[in-house]
Design a protein around this nucleic acid. Structure first.
Lengths: 109, 109
DNA sequence: AAAGTTACCTTGTAATGCAAAGTAGTTGGT
DNA sequence: ACCAACTACTTTGCATTACAAGGTAACTTT
């Protein structure tokens, strides 16, 4: 049990929230998301992201369309569905509560 | 994939941090922790807490001693070890960074 | 046409949260 | 003295899922 493993653990729970947030701002494909998450120091790898996107699609929270690229293979561009938008709104609340609860415990004297 | 499951997911990552924080404030036993976490709206059940405490002990982050109860069976009272204290301090940093990274993504316009 | 790049997908493993059932010490009513 | 209720800790089995590693395919460059 080292610090790095626990850091990974902590990030797990909010990944879904971050990805839905990114998709909510406009059409993106997987590499866009990877870049933004990496910039925000929330590490994710392909092996995590692709299965998660598949789960989100199966749950009806996101949808995608194939788009030809100017250079390279075609890309899957994702968008939020109506359900996805409602779900994200609920997650925002959950996140805010979690932060407040955790800080209450961590800073309690 | 419902909201409740995702809420559970989110909490997972910070559980270790919360539990170490609680133990850092003084000797407590499992039911004390369950009560405090429940009050803070971070739901945990026995089946999660006990194995986690065992992992923390095996990792040398916490220690415990048996204490006879005035009423009921004896209790395991936990304390942080030196290593546990250092680990908690690192986790505090990880948590702060995660909150800031996530909010940056979630509130980015 | 061969090598490189970009993009998406899959498989196998390990970790772990949780429900549910189990063990054991203590108390209180009859 | 017994037995039900309570408290506390433990264990088992299942489902989920992050990740490393390897794979497929389209397109570009040399």
């Amino acid at each position: 049990m080292n610090l790095e493993n626990t850091q990974v653990q902590m990030r797990k729970g909010v990944l879904e929230f971050c990805i839905l947030s990114i998709i909510s701002r406009g059409e993106v494909y997987a590499s866009d998301m990877l870049e933004e998450l990496t910039n925000a120091k929330i590490m994710v790898v392909e092996g995590t992201l692709y299965p998660l996107l598949t789960r989100l699609r199966k749950a009806g929270l996101v949808d995608y369309k194939w788009v030809e690229s100017i250079a390279g293979p075609p890309r899957k561009y994702y968008t939020l569905t109506h359900i996805g938008r409602e779900f994200l709104s609920g997650l925002q609340g959950t996140w805010n509560e979690l932060v407040s609860s955790t800080n209450r415990i961590a800073n309690h004297q």
